[in-house]
Design a protein around this nucleic acid. Structure first.
Length: 793
DNA sequence: GATTTTACGTA
DNA sequence: CGTACGTAAAATCT
């Protein structure tokens, strides 16, 4: 049936959906189905009711199978069939007769019909003018049906509706009243810099070209409504023939950035470039909108564009990056200022100030480690590469001879052909996210190891070894900087890169989450090394060395996640063990059976701790590890190399002996059900927006231990950097460990260890109980050959 | 040529 | 049905 437009005559907000669904079709009223119910909730969050709005759809009749594609001539859904064109004309008439002030376009089809724009993801959140009925405002947002599949988009949709409500009271189209100056003369820019020096706050943004991260454009905003950007390099050519002119400007810029409190968006990048290329330390850089967003809304995207769309009311500008780069840059600076003002209120209102300040305190250390880099011993590197080449050749030749032809072991296709056709082995399947998904064949390491166990073909193990050697090459065969160093970008707010893009994205990532740990990625300023320094295999670590005349001192939190878990689940036996072993040497712990895995095994098998055999200990270790994060019997079976049935028995034995973990998992599920928010032991909150189910639960189980340990280390590191970095400088961060450099004599090593220990002993309180996580030390001349040492030895 | 999938290294 | 992270190469799409 034809579903008509409904709503009161006086309404000034019109909501346009895509097409009627089953319920709408049956009742003849728009938005009465499932997505209508969600719409009610969303509108409620913006103090709006459906009954105050004009409701309609682009297509007035339900398409077969709810497929909107039915109404289009082409796959891209840009050429409507005559019937849809008629419906759109009806929509136009409705707009003319109801005269809404603003139209909320729900989803791609509504956006397209009202404005001709094809992409909802870029248009979302920015008010534009309708092309269907010129003069009418359109605010595009996601369709509720899309939100039900992508819950992380609920937040922006609510913000969009609020923006629509706020704008529905304004008579005109949004006029852009900002003053964005993009082509000043040198004199005008110098005047502006003098003006900026008198401001209480400014926002700054730079545009750079790679390689070299040269600054093309620098923009400064003195308020959300006033910004000026200056172009230094255009089309790779400097603007001034006399370098003197540029020097003057940089001197003035340096004065401003070192004295005026500065806001940036992902300023770790900007300030690193300014420091490295122009010697400007940006001492005024105190606030960052990306860090602020990470603290307030860790689960949402934090590109400046996204944040602007939810925080402020400006026209979309990201598409002007190439055509009007200076204007774009001025917009960035002004909008950074605007976003800051909104998020700052949220920081205060939401009680996020301490966490925000702690995040900002990490910026300096992260930048220091980024720019300093780590030295690589070229001789060791050459030796390791040579060894790797000969080993790879040897295993490769053996395999090629055995199979009668060359095989690309990196190719899943060729591997599948080899394993499941040529060798006729039983296909192995990947684990699925849910049972409903189709099974997919895999040829990964685990699969090959499983096959090796069944078939006794020694070539399978050789394949695994060969693949490892191929992989190792990528860690060894790396480019070093002219001074023989590698650099990594430490990201305090988690990931900074969109998945597998050609160009590394600096402040524009849409796919962002973070569990409070640092991540490490390729530096675009100093692109030397393998990029990520947190996943270097042990073998390759040999070539990483401290600066001349020093050794590495490694300090890592001992079994940190296990300690945290023991306290949260209230496992008294384990807590007792951790207390007894605190500060004790490895030998003492071994002699006195102070060993988590032995204790686990003893509990499982119901025997005294000193009777646990090495095999039983291995079972205990695997089971504890597996159960902590809710792994299943298949993983345990693979790890231990035992049949599934035995693995299940082991798991049941453990769960029977130690029920606390399951009780805790239940508790986590209840917390997720009531608020979807979990808080780590330092008060950092994370909202879990993924689809309800086991995958969500497991992610949640790992959150508290993982993020608590990450934050523990980062707190220690900030304190250490402030107090001791000049004496024993920091070199590396590895989630639960940090590395510093010290002269290798006993006195210095001991002092370095004590400095680390002092900063790392941070008491953690949980349920009125306070504890510390113990620290282990290792020292050595390179990153691989480290030997254990006690605090005082 | 761009995007998605597969695999794999660390904590 | 461990999770978190980043990178490389192959496979697939357009």
């Amino acid at each position: 049936m034809l579903v008509k437009t409904v709503g009161p005559e006086y309404a000034n907000i019109m909501i346009v959906g895509e097409a009627p669904g089953e319920q709408e079709d049956a009742q003849g009223i728009p938005f009465v189905g499932q997505s209508g119910q969600l719409l009610d909730k969303i509108l409620g969050q913006a103090q709006l009711s459906k009954h105050e709005c004009i409701l309609t759809n682009v297509a007035k009749i339900r398409p077969p199978g709810n497929q909107i594609g039915y109404y289009f001539e082409n796959k891209a859904k840009t050429i409507p069939k005559p019937v849809l064109a008629e419906h759109i004309e009806m929509l136009r008439q409705d707009i003319l007769s109801y005269k809404p002030n603003i139209i909320i376009a729900l989803g791609r089809t509504a956006l397209w019909a009202l404005t001709g724009q094809p992409a909802i993801s870029t248009a979302r959140g920015f008010i534009t003018e309708s092309t269907l009925v010129p003069g009418v405002k359109v605010l595009p947002t996601y369709h509720p049906r899309y939100v039900t599949e992508n819950w992380e988009m609920l937040f922006p949709v609510i913000m969009d509706i609020r923006k629509a409500v706020a704008n529905s009271h304004k008579p005109d189209l949004v006029r852009d009243t900002r003053v964005l100056m993009s082509s000043p003369t040198k004199g005008e820019f110098m005047d502006f810099l003098r003006h900026a020096e008198t401001c209480e706050k400014i926002a700054v943004d730079i545009e750079t070209t790679s390689p070299g991260s040269h600054i093309d454009i620098l923009g400064i905003a003195t308020s959300p409504n006033e910004a000026m950007s200056f172009t230094f390099i255009r089309n790779r050519k400097p603007r001034f023939s006399n370098p003197r002119d540029e020097v003057d400007i940089w001197a003035a810029v340096a004065r401003v950035l070192n004295t005026v409190p500065t806001i940036m968006h992902n300023g770790t990048y900007d300030s690193a470039v300014l420091t490295l290329n122009h010697g400007i330390f940006c001492r005024g850089y105190k606030d960052d909108t990306m860090v602020a967003a990470h603290v307030c809304w860790p689960e949402v995207p934090r590109s400046l564009s996204f944040l602007s769309s939810v925080c402020i009311n400006v026209p979309s500008w990201k598409h002007l990056q190439t055509t009007m780069p200076a204007w774009y840059n001025a917009s960035d600076a002004a909008n950074t200022f605007g976003v800051y003002e909104v998020i700052w209120k949220e920081i205060l209102h939401g009680g996020h100030l301490p966490t925000y300040q702690f995040e900002m305190a990490q910026v300096e250390v992260a930048n220091y480690l980024h720019l300093k880099g780590v030295k690589v011993d070229r001789d060791v590197q050459a030796r390791l590469i040579a060894e790797n080449i000969s080993a790879t050749k040897k295993s490769g030749t053996t395999l090629a001879e055995a199979f009668g032809h060359e095989i690309n072991f990196n190719s899943p296709k060729q591997m599948a052909q080899l394993l499941y056709n040529d060798l006729g082995l039983p296909p192995q399947y990947k684990r699925r996210k849910s049972v409903s998904e189709p099974r997919k064949v895999t040829t990964d390491k685990e699969a090959i190891i499983r096959l090796s166990r069944m078939s006794d073909n020694p070539l399978l193990d050789l394949i695994v070894q060969h693949k490892k050697e191929i992989k190792l090459k990528s860690f060894l065969d790396i480019e070093l900087s002219p001074t023989g160093r590698v650099h990594t970008n430490y990201n305090i707010t988690g990931a900074t890169m969109a998945h597998q893009k050609k160009a590394i994205v600096i402040d524009d990532d849409e796919n962002y989450k973070s569990f409070g740990r640092w991540s490490s990625s390729k530096s675009i300023i100093l692109p030397y090394g393998s990029g990520n320094l947190q996943n270097i295999p042990r073998v390759a670590r040999e070539m990483y060395v401290p600066d001349a005349g020093c050794w590495f001192v490694q300090a890592d939190y001992k079994q940190a996640e296990a300690v945290i878990v023991a306290y949260i689940i209230g496992d008294e036996k384990l807590k007792d063990m951790f207390k007894q072993s605190f500060g004790k040497s490895t030998k003492y712990c071994a002699d006195n059976n102070l060993d988590v895995h032995k204790i686990t095994a003893a509990m499982m098998f119901g025997i005294p701790v000193d009777e646990v055999t090495p095999t039983q200990r291995k079972v205990g270790k695997t089971i504890r590890h597996a159960t902590s994060y809710s792994a299943g019997p298949k993983v345990v079976a693979d790890k231990l190399g035992v049949p599934l049935k035995i693995a299940k028995q082991h798991l049941n034995q453990y769960l029977a002996a130690s029920p606390q973990l399951q009780i805790w998992h239940k508790r986590i599920q209840e917390e997720l059900a009531s608020t979807r928010i979990l808080t780590n032991l330092f008060g950092r909150k994370h909202k879990f927006l993924k689809k309800w189910g086991d995958s969500l639960f497991r992610s949640a189980y790992s959150y508290i231990p993982q993020s608590t340990v990450g934050e523990l280390l980062n707190r220690a590191m900030v304190t250490y950097a402030e107090k001791y970095n000049t004496q024993y400088p920091l070199c590396l961060q590895l989630h639960d460990a940090m590395y510093v450099a010290s002269p290798p004599d006993a006195v210095n090593l001991r002092a370095a260890k004590h400095a680390l220990y002092e900063c790392m002993m941070i008491p953690i309180t949980y349920k009125e109980e306070t504890f510390c996580v113990d620290v282990d030390f290792k020292v050595g001349p390179n990153w691989k050959d480290l030997t254990e040492t006690d605090l005082d030895s």
